[in-house]
C-alpha cells in the first residue's frame, strides 16, 4: 500500500513539474526538452534490441528516419492530414520496415547483426539521397503544414505554438514509454531477455526463436518510427543528414550505453545527459562531436554499466555498509 501511494506521489510530482516546466524555463529550453524526449524514446527502442535482446542495431536511424519521412511525406502530399494519424503513419512505417527486414535479421546475431543493420541503414540512406524526386535528396522534405490537435466539437489546439507542441509531444512520449515499459514486463518481455542470455534454450523450451526475435524487432521499429514522426512534426524539416545518417544511428547507442543498458530507464538518463552536455558544450566550443567521442571512450573505459549501473552499484555499496556498521 505504501509503495502504491509513493508511486502515485512520484507520478503526480513528475507530471506537475512537466506541466509547469515551459513556464519556468522559457521557449528555448522547452524545445531542448522536446528534443531530449524524442531521443529518449528513440534510445529506449534501441535498447529493446541491445539491452534486452542482446543485438546491436547499427542502423537504427533507418526506423527513425523512415518514420520521419513517412510523416513528412503524408503531411506534404495529403491535404488536411490529421495529427494523430500522422504519428501512426510514422509508427506503421517503422514497423513495416522491421517486418520486411525481420526474415533476414532474425537469422543472425552478434557482429553479423550489427553489420547487417549497418548495411540496411546505409542502403536506405543512399536510397533517400538518390531518389530526390520523392525525398528531396540532401535538401529533404520541409515546410509541410503542422496539423492542429483536433477533437471535432470539443477542442482544436494549434500545434504550431511551441508550448502547445511541447505538451503534446511530452504526453505522447510518456504514453509510448509507459507502453514499452509495460511491454518489457509482460511474459513476452521476459522471453526477449531469455533470447539475450541463451537463444538456443528459448527454442528448446518450446518458444519459436525467430518469431520472438521478429516481434521484438517490429515493436522496436514501430516506436522508433513514432519517435521519428514526432521529430518530423517538431522540426518541420526531414533531411537525410538529420534523420538517416550514421550519426543518427550512433546517437541512441551512445545514449543507451551512457545511461546503462541493463535498465529500462538508462537510455532516458543517457539522452538527458547528452542533451545537457551538448547545451553546455555549445557555450564553450562548436565541437560537440569531440565531447561526444570523449564521453563514449570514458564511459566504455570507466563506467561500462552506464550511469544507472554506477548508481545501482553505489546504492548496493551504501546499503551494504549500513548493514555492516
Amino acid at each position: 500500500m505504501r509503495n502504491n501511494l509513493s508511486r502515485w506521489i512520484y507520478w503526480v510530482v513528475g507530471l506537475v513539474i512537466l506541466a509547469i516546466y515551459p513556464q519556468v524555463v522559457g521557449i528555448y529550453y522547452t524545445n531542448v526538452f522536446v528534443g531530449f524526449a524524442i531521443f529518449a524514446l528513440y534510445a529506449v527502442t534501441l535498447n529493446l534490441l541491445l539491452g534486452y535482446m542482446g543485438v546491436l542495431s547499427f542502423g537504427h536511424a533507418m526506423f527513425f528516419g523512415v518514420g520521419a519521412y513517412s510523416t513528412a511525406l503524408a503531411l506534404t502530399h495529403i491535404q488536411g492530414f490529421p495529427l494523430l494519424p500522422a504519428l501512426l503513419v510514422g509508427g506503421l512505417a517503422g514497423a513495416m520496415l522491421a517486418l520486411i527486414l525481420s526474415p533476414l535479421l532474425v537469422r543472425v546475431s552478434g557482429t553479423a547483426f550489427a553489420m547487417l543493420t549497418l548495411a540496411f541503414g546505409q542502403l536506405i540512406f543512399v536510397l533517400a539521397l538518390k531518389y530526390r524526386e520523392v525525398t528531396g535528396g540532401e535538401d529533404g522534405v520541409g515546410g509541410y503544414p503542422t496539423p492542429s490537435f483536433n477533437i471535432p466539437g470539443v477542442v482544436s489546439i494549434d500545434m504550431t505554438d511551441q508550448i502547445n507542441f511541447y505538451y503534446f509531444a511530452v504526453a505522447v512520449i510518456i504514453v509510448c514509454l509507459w507502453v514499452l515499459w509495460f511491454y518489457t514486463k509482460t511474459p513476452f518481455g521476459s522471453l526477449v531477455v531469455g533470447v539475450r542470455d541463451n537463444a538456443m534454450r528459448i527454442d528448446y523450451l518450446g518458444f519459436k526463436l525467430s518469431h520472438t526475435k521478429a516481434v521484438n524487432l517490429i515493436v522496436s521499429g514501430c516506436f522508433a518510427g513514432i519517435a521519428g514522426a514526432i521529430y518530423a512534426l517538431f522540426q518541420n524539416l526531414v533531411s537525410t543528414l538529420g534523420v538517416l545518417d550514421i550519426g543518427t544511428s550512433f546517437a541512441p547507442i551512445l545514449m543507451a550505453y551512457i545511461g546503462g543498458l541493463g535498465s529500462f530507464f538508462g537510455p532516458i538518463v543517457g539522452s538527458g545527459i547528452l542533451h545537457l552536455l551538448e547545451d553546455v558544450t555549445f557555450r564553450i566550443t562548436e565541437q560537440i562531436e569531440l565531447v561526444n567521442g570523449l564521453v563514449f571512450i570514458l564511459v566504455v573505459l570507466y563506467a561500462p554499466m552506464g550511469i544507472v549501473g554506477l548508481l545501482r552499484q553505489a546504492k548496493a555499496k551504501w546499503f551494504h555498509k549500513e548493514k555492516v556498521s
Binding site: 509495460f182 509482460t186 513476452f188 518458444f207 519459436k208 516481434v215
Partner: peptide
C-alpha cells in the same frame, strides 16, 4: 503463454 502482451508476468 507466449505472445501475451497484456499482463505483467510478475502479476500472474
Amino acid at each position: 503463454i507466449r505472445f501475451n502482451l497484456f499482463r505483467k508476468v510478475d502479476k500472474m
